[in-house]
Design a protein around this nucleic acid. Structure first.
Length: 428
RNA sequence: GUGGACGUAGCUCAGCUGGUAGAGCCCCGGAUUGUGAUUCCGGCCGUCGCGGGUUCGAGUCCCGUCGUCCACCCCA
């Protein structure tokens, strides 16, 4: 045997056993987005490296050390997208979607970041990403958050809570940033190593520190809220009012700052305590300034992204079982002559009832083995064909979940009998 | 990127101070030769992540490497 090949670090196979949760999440989200009037857009996985440098910020960790970048044959630097927003904005600009227009868009797929893997944090991970362009007011902020809240509700997800903050405008943030740097510089002796590093690059992130020794000093730091302008203040108030109207609970977390540079005003995060340290399952915010940065007409914009792996993990953690995918019918096939008749019967059932889930008991085995498989498959009804039946042109039809007699039917009668038994179960 | 734990059958794991691998589950077959549970019997499955070193001898010790997990960092 040849040596086996290990998968790449942080790159996972999503196995059949987990797919029901993925489908549940994706189909629920898809349905909800449709219902809210959001349109799907599909984007390339590769973009010019410049896009992310400009959008996310040249000096963020993501761009500095986590991107999968490489040169193509022409020497151009390409990057596997580390997030969707930049690509989506680029696509909107490339296709002229931003000329005095409004758009509600969503996309889903894999993202790539070269981080050290951990549970709920992978190098290839999947996001569902929702963005709205051209809406100024806090109403769209509230709609987007309501949409996410409704998604949790539909998925049966508890143990998530909403945290909210406003970062103000880039200008006011700059002023605040200076005050913060001034404050932390004054307390430089108290800062840990990480925070000293952050003081250079992204001082706002110090507010987010998990180090309990810094808690007291951080709590006394100037509050971002105080440097909010009137317009931002009103926007934030409007959002909170709308959320209260919608009955969505939230807490304002003044220390909630985002890792990406492009956010302004509203930022929010759905967090959980159930997944260890990777506690953010969905986060987003407003980024009114990003589009001109990428060469588009100034357009207000807001969006969020959820991590599919984290949601799936959380659903499993909470014991949420997705809708089953059990077959309706299992065709028990035993014997040489039964083999042909069995296959034909499975097809006949599919012809007669297009939506019917039919598993054919291929692969041989005796009656005992076939019935074990039928039982394990979760099928409701078994259609049984042995050599005996094949010779006589009949099949046995048996309900596997109810104590009723097994009946013998001519081949032609089988679809009807099957439908009758399924009807007895769930009113189909 | 930093610190730590770990990597033995498809899965969960055992294997003490080094002497050439075990259990349970799963799967397959059988228990009056055509029917799903339980029980019982039998069977299949591993180059002990990979590479090197020490040793008469390594799953067991050492080094390297790849991967997983946890915390930090970062973030979905």
């Amino acid at each position: 045997m040849n040596p086996t090949i290990q998968p790449l670090r942080g790159m996972n196979d999503v196995l059949p056993a987990d797919m029901p949760w993925w489908h549940f999440l994706e189909s629920t989200a898809h349905g909800l987005l449709d219902a809210y009037g959001y349109q799907e857009i599909r984007l390339p996985l590769l973009e010019q490296t410049t896009l992310f440098k400009r959008a996310i910020g040249e000096y963020t960790d993501i761009v500095e050390k986590e991107m999968f970048s490489f040169d193509d044959r022409d020497g151009d630097s390409l990057t596997l997208r580390p997030e969707a927003t930049a690509s989506l904005v680029r696509a909107a600009i490339s296709n002229g979607l931003l000329h005095n227009q409004r758009h509600r868009l969503w996309t889903a797929g894999p993202m790539f970041r070269g981080e050290r893997p951990q549970k709920g944090r992978y190098r290839q991970f999947h996001q569902i990403d929702v963005e709205a362009f051209g809406f100024v007011g806090p109403d769209i902020d509230a709609e987007l958050i309501s949409l996410s809240a409704r998604l949790w509700q539909r998925l049966g997800l508890s143990k998530v809570r909403l945290e909210l903050n406003s970062l103000g405008t880039p200008e006011s943030r700059l002023v605040y940033r200076e005050r913060l740097v001034e404050y932390f510089t004054r307390h430089h002796a108290l800062l840990d190593e990480d925070s000293r590093r952050r003081l250079q690059g992204n001082p706002l992130r110090i507010l987010d520190s998990k180090n309990p020794e810094l808690a007291e000093m951080i709590a006394a730091a100037p509050a971002l809220e105080a440097s909010l302008g009137d317009a931002c203040r009103a926007h934030f108030d409007g959002l909170q009012q709308a959320l209260t109207d919608a009955g969505i609970a939230y807490t304002v977390n003044p220390r909630l700052v985002r890792g990406l540079d492009y956010y302004s005003r509203t930022v929010f995060e759905w967090v959980t305590d159930a997944l260890g340290s990777q506690n953010a399952v969905c986060s987003g915010g407003r980024y009114d300034g990003l589009i001109p940065l990428l060469g588009g007409e100034p357009t207000p914009a807001i969006g969020w992204a959820l991590g599919e792996e984290r949601i799936v993990l959380l659903m499993q953690e909470l014991g949420i079982s997705p809708p089953g995918v059990q077959p309706d019918v299992f065709v028990v096939i035993v014997g040489e002559r039964a083999s042909r008749a069995g296959l034909a019967m499975a097809e006949k059932l599919r012809d007669a009832h297009p939506g019917l889930k039919v598993h054919a008991g291929l692969g041989g085995g005796g009656f005992k083995a076939q019935f074990k498989r039928a039982d394990k498959s979760g099928a409701t009804v078994a259609v049984i064909i042995g050599d005996d039946e094949a010779d006589r042109g009949v099949a046995q039809v048996k309900h596997l979940r109810m104590e009723t007699a097994q009946t013998t039917c001519a081949f032609a009668e089988v679809p009807l009998q099957v439908a009758a038994l399924l009807g007895a179960t769930d009113g189909r």
